[in-house]
Design a protein around this nucleic acid. Structure first.
Length: 492
RNA sequence: GGUUCCUUGGCCGAGUGGCUAGGCAGCGGUCUGCAAAACCGUGUACGGCGGUUCGACUCCGCCAGGAACCUCCA
């Protein structure tokens, strides 16, 4: 086991060899979604990225504890509308539901979508609303350490004071002076010492539905707090990797660092990893820009920018074909290319299963292929390169089948294991059967019978009949492939 | 305005100081009764202008265009 897993650490702005705090174990925390509306393409990108990390760490032999939270406390002030109402409550009011009903509904959708994308569920999925006491405890410890102050029933983090001792802005590459001169002055900040101070605990206005009692009065926790608290609770005061979207780098993750450090006197996270955004026509996909596509819309094709439906695996493959730190631009053309490429990869996987060893020595180098592929994954999870090498494997498989290359029994076994490991276990791609399932034996029997008739017709040079069978099967979604070993069929 | 980043062939998307990324599409061929599939072959790509260098798409500077963060966001 010579190779080392290298990951890009946003904190140091460079690639570093992954060294776990505890040998053989890895602690991973990823910021989960706020469940107040449907999951979208951006969620797919983030959670597929860290699913790849989770799967790869597992593949490398680490016992991984993967914590991904659900943000179900509506602490997000609605600045755009200017109502000061949190998003969950607003949704609840609009749809005449309990806030927790809203949360449950979208959490269910999120889980279903993630399952469809073959994203492995995390080891622990804690909810912010279930950790109010712990959050209050952290507020108290930050207060006790002198890095926060109470003001009119709310508690704010004292950024300036923290910065005197530590470094606020180290993750996002800012310094407090810049932040000072560039922070917008918003209304209602009079109770803060400085505009860049952020809320740890916020006093609830009388109409605020999601509220909890505290020693500072009824209120709710600040957004940044839950991740500091829950990561500490389940992964310890210090843990290996914290992930999330690039957009969370500031202020969310910066504030997390400040909170953890202020409460415990040391930093919690060793490696910060951030996935880049998905853009649509070159622009970030965002609710506020009105250009976001939900996963359900993607899977059904029900969105005006979509020319067709795209399957979950197509989306997954599309995302894995770009490096996680690059932006990836959505387009129908790109998605269609991914769909076809994925089809070729998966049908090679099928072919591989049916391959038999050739006589004599291999003419292909399976080991070299494996080495190159794993080297790519070791290099900051370079999935596009790994996939490029996989396609070399596809060529290899097809050439063996066509009789242009030879493979020994041992190599064939190695190739099979390699493909299963990389394609299925690490990249998390699976075969998608078309909806028509059930009655498979009858179906197969019928099709095989038709193919027999076609073979006979061909033998009699009855092209009309043979083409009629081919076209007819084609029309109901069965594709015929004539190979040297006779006709084969597959579902389109 | 501040901070950071990007600009690769028809499309998407890796990467490197001199050596073929890959996918999709296209073109030519093999196979086929014809197709499809598969296989083989095929593309003188690196925003513009300077500089460093024996040599730059890759390093430096400037310019142009675009993006992200600075406000909720994956």
């Amino acid at each position: 086991m010579e190779n080392q897993f290298v990951i890009y650490n946003t904190l140091t702005r460079q690639k570093e060899v992954f060294k776990p705090l505890v040998q053989g174990k890895a602690g991973l925390y990823v910021c989960g979604p706020t469940v107040y509306s449907n999951s979208h393409l951006g969620h797919a990108r983030a959670y597929i990225t860290f699913d790849l990390l989770f799967r790869y760490l597992t593949h490398l032999g680490y016992k991984v504890r993967y914590v991904r939270n659900i943000t179900d406390v509506g602490h997000l002030e609605d600045e755009v509308e200017g109502t000061g109402e949190d998003k969950v409550s607003k949704k609840a009011r609009l749809e005449k539901l309990e806030p927790m009903e809203v949360v449950q509904m979208y959490m269910n959708t999120f889980h279903r979508n993630m399952d469809e994308l073959n994203v492995v569920r995390p080891s622990i999925e804690p909810r912010a609303s279930g950790h109010i006491i712990e959050q209050q405890e952290m507020v108290e410890s930050i207060l006790k350490n002198g890095f926060a102050y109470e003001s009119n029933g709310s508690v704010y983090f004292d950024v300036e004071k923290y910065n005197d001792k530590y470094n606020y802005g180290k993750l996002s590459g800012r310094n407090l002076d810049d932040i000072k001169t560039n922070t917008r002055e918003l209304d209602g900040q009079s109770e803060k010492k400085n505009s860049f101070d952020f809320a740890l605990w916020k006093k609830a206005s009388p109409e605020h539905i999601m509220r909890w009692p505290s020693k500072w009065g009824d209120g709710f926790p600040g957004w940044h707090l839950e991740c500091s608290v829950m990561s500490m609770k389940y992964l310890g005061e210090q843990f290996d990797i914290h992930g999330g979207g690039m957009d969370l780098r500031f202020p969310h993750h910066e504030c997390e660092i400040a909170q953890s450090t202020a409460s415990q006197g040391k930093e919690a996270v060793h490696y910060w990893m951030h996935n880049n955004m998905i853009t649509i026509n070159g622009q970030k996909m965002a609710r506020s820009l009105g250009n976001f596509i939900t996963l359900d819309e993607l899977f059904t094709g029900a969105h005006e920018v979509l020319e067709q439906a795209y399957s979950p695996m197509t989306i997954r493959f599309f995302i894995l074909q770009a490096h996680y730190r690059s932006t990836i631009d959505f387009s129908n053309e790109a998605l269609k290319a991914s769909e076809k490429g994925l089809g070729r990869l998966m049908s090679a996987l099928k072919t591989l299963r049916g391959l038999s060893p050739s006589e004599g020595q291999s003419t292909v180098d399976v080991q070299a292929l494996k080495d190159k592929c794993f080297a790519a994954l070791d290099d900051d999870m370079n999935s596009p390169i790994a996939i490029a090498h996989l396609f070399e494997g596809v060529k290899m498989i097809n050439s063996i089948k066509a009789g242009n290359e030879k493979i020994s029994g041992a190599d064939l076994e190695g190739l099979r294991a390699f493909f299963k490991t990389v394609v299925c276990d690490i990249l998390g791609l699976k075969e998608e059967e078309s909806e028509s399932s059930g009655g498979d034996e009858i179906l197969e029997g019928s099709i095989n019978l038709l193919l027999q008739l076609r073979t006979e017709a061909k033998a009699n040079k009855d092209w009309a009949t043979s083409d009629k069978i081919r076209d007819g099967l084609n029309a109901i979604g069965i594709e015929i492939k004539d190979t040297k070993n006779g006709a084969e069929w597959s579902r389109k």
